[in-house]
Design a protein around this nucleic acid. Structure first.
Lengths: 115, 115
DNA sequence: CTGTATCCTGTAGGATACTG
DNA sequence: CAGTATCCTACAGGATACAG
C-alpha cells in the first residue's frame, strides 16, 4: 500500500482524517479473507492455507501476526507433537465481521451493475 | 497492494473466497478518506485536495475515476469558467458509509487497547 | 480549476529453501 | 506442522511539469 509519507507538505490538518484506521486494519492483502475464514470459528495455520490457496506462508504469517498485535486475532499454541496452532477472532475481531459482510454485499451489487 | 497473481498454483478453489471484493472497493490508498469526505455531501476536486492534504492530484484522480467506474461515485462537470467538477456519492456509495464508520469504530477501540 | 504525462522509489508480497 | 530466511519484482503512489 506504501502510503502517507508525503515530503513537502504541511502536516495534515488534524480536524478529521480518521480513515487510515480503515487500511490499518484491513489494509494487507488477504486480510479480509483471513478474518472471513476465522469468523467461522478457530482455524489452524494449515487450514487457513487451504482456505485461501493463493496466499503464501510468509504473507499468511505476516497478516496473522499483524492482526494479533492489533488484538483482533488470538494465537493459541497447543503443545502437541507435531505442534498445532489455533487462530481465532477475539471479541474485537468479531466486531469486524458485519463490516466485512457489508462490504461484500456492496461488492456484489457492483458486480451486478458491471455485468 | 500488488496481490492475487500467484504463478504456480491451482486456480483458486471457488467455493467461497469473496473477500477480494473488499479490497477491490476500499483497496486504494486514501479511498476510505475520499468516501468519507464525500459522505458529507458533494465536493469539488480542489475541495477534496484540501480535505485530504497528503494526497497527490494524480492519486486523487485515479481513486475518483476508479470509484466512478464502480458506480460508487458520480462525476458532474459544470460548464463554467473556470471549469468545476463536482463529485458525489451514488446511492450505492451511500451504502458504504456505515461500513466505513464501523471500521473507524473498531479502529478506535484498537488504539485504546494499544495505548 | 481540473486534470495528464513522466519518471522514480519503497514496499508489499511471491518463490523457494530451510528449521524446530 | 508451523513457521523463518532470502532474494526478487511488480506496482501503487510521490514529485514535478505541463495542458485544456
Amino acid at each position: 500500500m506504501v502510503l502517507p509519507v508525503r515530503k513537502n507538505k504541511s502536516p495534515n490538518t488534524p480536524h478529521e482524517c480518521p480513515l487510515s484506521q480503515c487500511m490499518a486494519i484491513l489494509g494487507g492483502a488477504w486480510t479480509p479473507n483471513v478474518l472471513w475464514y476465522l469468523s467461522g470459528g478457530p482455524r489452524r495455520f494449515s487450514e487457513l492455507q487451504i482456505d485461501i490457496p493463493p496466499v503464501s506462508a510468509k504473507v499468511l504469517t505476516t497478516r496473522l501476526r499483524d492482526l494479533e498485535s492489533k488484538g483482533v486475532v488470538s494465537r493459541n499454541v497447543k503443545p502437541t507433537s507435531p505442534p498445532s496452532v489455533e487462530y481465532a477472532l477475539t471479541d474485537l475481531g468479531q466486531e469486524l465481521i458485519p463490516v466485512i459482510e457489508a462490504i461484500v454485499e456492496v461488492g456484489h451489487k457492483i458486480k451486478l451493475r458491471t455485468e
